[in-house]
């Protein structure tokens, strides 16, 4: 089956390609397929020990009087897929909607995740659920963290913390922070309609507020479709005695004609951004 990655705020799993994210929050995802909800994931970090009974009670209370919540034994098919977690399975029903899910506790990162699959519990659905759970990870093993939602993908150093995000039709914006550095990744589409024969620099000036004449070709193979701006170095040493304000230090915008998208990365900091940092982050940010 054709699958795609979902990477969001430390959580990773693979879903069938026709499943789409319809609700997204910092620690919450709902995926749908052909207008019907398929899967819900929510997670949070806990401090103390994981108590299964406490989570069952909390879920039972959340279900309310009109719904029905029942703990169940972890299905054998799921057991092998969830060997790295402490798992507690359940079934849930409210009106026409029914689901089967699992509460997962990771001993390494101390996160508790609730994963539930909606719909009839046919053999195919169960197999899809097993495959998704087999790919489920709640923390990254290395020093980078992947981000892959909708049609964008990026790979950022792990200390970058998501501060703000906005997914509007035609325009996405995600902001991360690491110490005083703010990184904003943007994506616009459809590029052909937005540019409409105008220059990319004119579009960049309008969207990012950096004058058209300041943009320079970014160099490399994508020089024709990528522009870059970096704040010139301060010459007067006396100014360096004062604390520098956090402001835009560098920005890059590039057009991906094949995907019909425009991507941009903006760095705010109190000190200059290294060209390598700019290249690494922009190189890992792509439209799918």
């Amino acid at each position: 089956m054709d699958r795609r990655n979902i990477d969001w705020n430390g959580i990773h799993f693979q879903v069938p390609r026709d499943w789409e994210i319809t609700r997204i929050d910092r620690r919450y995802l709902v995926l749908e397929s052909v207008g019907a909800p398929q899967m819900e994931v929510k997670w949070h970090a806990i401090r103390g020990p994981f108590r299964r009974a406490r989570y069952y009670k909390r879920l039972s209370d959340a279900c309310g009087a009109s719904g029905r919540f029942e703990p169940m034994d972890l299905p054998n098919a799921w057991r092998s897929a969830l060997a790295d977690f402490t798992a507690a399975a359940f079934t849930w029903q409210k009106g026409k909607l029914q689901s089967r899910g699992v509460v997962l506790h990771c001993r390494t990162c101390r996160k508790v995740c609730l994963v539930q699959f909606f719909g009839t519990l046919a053999a195919r659905t169960d197999d899809v659920a097993r495959q998704i759970l087999a790919t489920f990870r709640d923390h990254a093993e290395d020093s980078v963290r992947d981000w892959s939602v909708f049609d964008i993908r990026a790979r950022l150093p792990r200390p970058y913390v998501l501060k703000h995000f906005c997914f509007e039709a035609g325009r996405y914006e995600l902001v991360w922070q690491h110490k005083r550095r703010m990184l904003t990744l943007m994506r616009w589409g459809p590029a052909a309609a937005l540019l409409d024969g105008r220059k990319l620099a004119a579009f960049a000036a309008r969207q990012l507020g950096i004058a058209e004449h300041r943009w320079q070709p970014a160099g490399g193979a994508s020089a024709k479709t990528a522009l870059q701006w970096r704040r010139p170095a301060t010459r007067m040493a006396v100014w360096q005695l004062f604390p520098a304000p956090v402001r835009v230090q560098a920005a890059r915008i590039w057009h991906r004609p094949a995907e019909n998208r425009i991507l941009a990365a903006v760095f705010k900091d109190c000190k200059a951004i290294e060209q390598d940092d700019l290249d690494t982050i922009c190189g890992s940010y792509e439209a799918l």
Binding site: E20, I21, T22, F150, D151, A169, G170, G189, P190, A192, A193, E259, N260
Partner: peptide
């Protein structure tokens, strides 16, 4: 026409 994800196209067209 615009090579957009279906969900994004749905939001823009319905709005």
């Amino acid at each position: 026409i615009h090579r957009l994800p279906r969900r994004e196209a749905e939001l823009s067209v319905t709005r």
